[in-house]
Design a protein around this nucleic acid. Structure first.
Lengths: 230, 230
DNA sequence: AAGTGGTCTAGACCACCCT
DNA sequence: GGGTGGTCTAGACCACTTT
């Protein structure tokens, strides 16, 4: 087990029993308590600060943040996201086909026009009810036989497991829209209901574009929580 | 000058002249070149990795990312935000009054029910056209004579300049909605047009709640861009 | 003056990738 | 086996806050 992650876990356990603005023991003391160097303690503290769970003030100390665990803008799959909300994720595959990339899609995926891509359409469910309609395009070359796999589970997990491709970061654009007949029916809401429209370009550790996804989230059941800094 | 920031600057200059997937010198070499320890080099590299400018692969090296500088989710004012889009920010003050905090607002602002708060309503403009309708509540105590100030400019700048209160981070919740008669008229769009609805709680460096803002952005003219990691 | 977090060092070993 | 990034150590000094 990596030490700073272990320290992080033990700090998390402490923080859970503390109240907002309570002060944590000082770093040198934590280092002694956990039997690690101060550097390692600081590495663990830093990750908690980045998530907004604690904050530090020079010359005063490190304190528990107000507010609760609001997950920062990290890259999570729909499945993880739903589980974090205590909802059971599901999926209904609507379309799965091989296509030739249109020029604009090719540019987005950084491949050549006409190169083969996989196009998926899925209805994402939470506790069995529609939450999100998503269309995903992926370059076909890195993912042989993708369409033969089980595409109703987590796509990210499939890419990581079978194709050793892990998404490292994503460019995301979030806007609002109202739903047309087809999308409203799929999501089980009235025509012209509001929805969050998210366009995402997923990038792997080497900087290759792995997916371009467009999702429509029911506005009455979903919102983005984020903590922004400085 | 803090060393790791200086190293960061010098690395940035190098990266600008490199192409995607070019490899950077190895960390031990950079340390020697810049006359600092490897730890300090790593601190500089880390900040560039977090911004997506470079990526590292264990056992291979550190490389320049594809894609350009995509600003992460940082805390910007409306004014900064508009200027980044080459739009001239403006403001029309609709309401500015002192109120007593309702219980729910008091809880959000972490003050006592009945404590005085300032309530502002502003129409935010971009190149003179409505972009966003915002309602802001602030605790009155830390901001004496706030209502006598010029409230049509940047609120963040006013808080920083006159009251020495700098927002350190904010909890934000983004959802979608459709506009009612009043809000549609204010924003100059048809009834029931889609809009982004943002609720934000701004926190200062000491963890005190400074503002609670609810904003409605025209969906046809505004979206959130963000880069998410890991 | 004492205590806190912020920065930095020099060196060590580990985990992983390549040839 | 040699080279890379990842983790960790023990110690030092600095900048800031509080007493």
């Amino acid at each position: 087990m990596i030490k700073h992650l272990e320290v992080r876990e033990r700090l998390l356990a402490r923080i859970r029993d503390m109240r907002p603005d309570d002060v944590l023991p000082q770093e040198r003391e934590l280092a002694e308590t956990f039997g690690v160097s101060r550097t390692t303690v600081r590495q663990a503290l830093q990750s908690l600060i980045e998530e907004g769970l604690i904050y530090s003030v020079r010359g005063r100390g490190t304190f528990v943040s107000r507010g609760r665990i609001s997950k920062g803008p990290t890259l999570t799959s729909f499945s993880d996201d739903m589980r974090a909300r205590d909802l059971e994720p599901g999926s209904r595959l609507l379309t799965a086909e091989r296509r030739d990339a249109e020029p604009e899609l090719a540019r987005t995926l950084e491949i050549k026009p006409g190169d083969p891509v996989f196009h998926l359409e899925r209805l994402r469910l939470a506790d069995g009810f529609p939450m999100c309609f998503e269309r995903v395009d992926l370059p076909a070359a890195p993912f042989p036989r993708l369409l033969d796999q089980d595409l109703e589970g987590s796509l990210y997990q499939l890419l990581a497991g079978r194709y050793r491709t892990v998404l490292a970061n994503a460019e995301q654009r979030v806007s609002a829209t109202t739903l047309n007949r087809r999308h409203a029916d799929l999501l089980g809401v009235p025509l012209r209901s509001p929805a969050l429209y998210v366009r995402r370009r997923g990038i792997d550790a080497r900087g290759r574009v792995v997916e371009f996804a467009r999702s429509l989230y029911r506005a009455d059941r979903y919102d983005f929580e984020m903590t922004v800094h400085r």
